[in-house]
């Protein structure tokens, strides 16, 4: 079994929801080690995505829909997370190409290209206390699951679980990128807001796959 355009639209709908529900929590996380706007930024972006998706052509490919997410995030989120997440969706969309159905390998290729996009723009490594600390474990887990012959749903669930752990694992870290890097040791004990939001987004991806499978 594989994932098509209704996976993308369901993922977007669930992301809009989860970002809006977690808006203040993400603002709070960002206030602790950043500037207190991360939840607001993402909420503004995904609200705009929702509007765009309302008029998404029925015959869109997953790639075209994901590219629409990318350009909308880039032109509405701002801050650091806008170009970074936008590039993730953009590069991910390019990896998907014009396929109409994504199998496990395609899902892995999507996630890998998305993560590589973030690295390309932001130059962060694992352990720098950024969203990469959610994305890279997710990519690794997804790759392993696909190699084990798991279904796309299982691949995404593995990615989401690894991302969630990766987000938690940012707590003891000192930040080397982004605003939190100004804090030195005082970032220790706080979860990175971008890693947390990426983990929420990937959980939404797995939930969506579960729902449409």
């Amino acid at each position: 079994m594989s994932l098509g355009i209704n996976w993308v639209t369901t993922w977007v709908a669930k992301t809009v929801d989860v970002v809006s529900t977690n808006r203040l929590r993400l603002v709070d996380l960002d206030r602790e080690i950043g500037d207190g706007d991360h939840g607001e930024n993402l909420d503004r972006g995904f609200t705009a995505v929702a509007t765009k998706f309302a008029s998404l052509p029925d015959d869109s490919t997953p790639g075209a829909a994901l590219k629409l997410v990318a350009t909308t995030l880039i032109s509405t989120v701002g801050g650091a997370s806008g170009p970074l997440l936008g590039t993730a969706y953009l590069k991910g969309a390019q990896a998907v190409g014009d396929a109409t159905e994504l199998d496990s390998d395609a899902v892995v290729a999507f996630l890998t290209a998305a993560r590589d996009g973030v690295v390309l723009r932001g130059k962060a490594e694992v352990g720098d206390k950024t969203m990469i600390d959610a994305w890279t474990p997710a990519v690794d887990a997804a790759t392993a699951a696909a190699a084990d012959g798991k279904s796309p749903v299982e691949v995404l669930r593995a990615a989401a679980d690894a991302a969630a752990q990766g987000a938690v694992a940012t707590e003891p870290l000192v930040a080397h990128k982004g605003r939190a890097s100004y804090l030195g040791d005082r970032a220790i004990g706080h979860r990175d807001p971008g890693a947390e939001s990426s983990s929420l987004i990937l959980a939404a991806a797995a939930d969506a796959a579960d729902e449409v499978k």
């Binding site: 500037d35 207190g36 706007d37 607001e40 930024n41 503004r44 880039i74 032109s75 509405t76 989120v77 701002g78 801050g79 650091a80 806008g82 170009p83």
Partner: peptide
């Protein structure tokens, strides 16, 4: 001018 404390987008 971007939103408060948030960089403007490229557009």
């Amino acid at each position: 001018p971007g939103p408060v404390f948030t960089s403007p987008t490229p557009d």
